[in-house]
Amino acid sequence: MEQLGNSAPLPTISYPMSAPFSWIRPEPHGIHIVPSDCWVDPSRAVERALVTHGHADHARGGHGSTMATPETLAIMKLRYNTDQGAQPVHYGETITLPGNVRATYIPAGHVLGSAQILLEHAGERVVITGDYKRRPDPTCAPFEVTPCDIFITEATFGLPLFTHPPIEEEMARLLARLSSHPDSCVLVGAYALGKAQRVIAELRRAGHHQPIYLHGAMEKMCRLYEDFGVELGPLRLVSDHSKEEMRGHIVISPPSALNDRWSRRLPDPITAMASGWMRVRQRARQRNVELPLIISDHADWAELTRTIEEVNPQESWITHGREEALLRWCQLHQRRARALALVGYEDEDD
């Protein structure tokens, strides 16, 4: 996959880890809980995995056992067609891992079922956010600030230029473009897990009750959301309908289908994309996006920095994204921080 930043990879900053926290170790392919021999979001198959949410880069298949929320386990079952070793953990529930480590799952506000994982051992508290956002989202439970000693945070949009505008503004722009082009359709590229359902739910909240047409790859995930009680309103499959029927309607597809020949079956589509990267004009241009919608399921710069302030940890570990800038912010604000060089996390489409 292409690297989004132009900068060279940051070497892991190595200074002696404060000895008290030696039970938790960042390794290249995941975070290792040493006394339990468990891994959080490992990028390869392990015996025991704790998974924060269902995106493929965090939820790989093939683990001996997988501890995750029921929603995340359902998503993984949909993707890997097996629920072998699934161990559901509900929000707020605490489980005890071998070696006397307690793990509590707390909503992260990223997508359906996404969780932060609070780990406690020997009186020390570590929170791993996985991916998270602070904005309200009708399709998932909101992020909860959880005080801790070590805060392991993502940094996907960790540059000060990233500000996600209120989603209502983006919905208004989408609906305005739709009504001014009644003979076209607006094709919205959106990540199939989370973003697509959030866009649909937000459209409904904005009063758009027309049928929304889906690329085939979206269907099962939307049904899964509905099974968990997320109302998405009337949905139709593009493949079941004619060009004429889709004029004046919204179509949602994975970003990869935007410029693909699949889109030739649509009536004069206006290409939109729902992504935090759309804040940058050239990113939109590169994908031939005519209507960029700045909608992200990740925290923007202000949310990332505010969250560190609110959680107020002794130390922040930054897992993936644009670590250097967030590290710099911590330095400027006299906060201890380090960047972890984890492999395999990708968020090009968010």
């Binding site: 930043g5 132009n6 900068s7 540059l159 000060p160 230029l161 940058v280 644009r322 800038a325 710099r328």
Partner: peptide, 10 residues
């Protein structure tokens, strides 16, 4: 530094 990281990205 934040400026140059941002400029580099954009």
């Amino acid at each position: 530094l934040l400026w140059s990281l941002s400029r580099d990205f954009v």
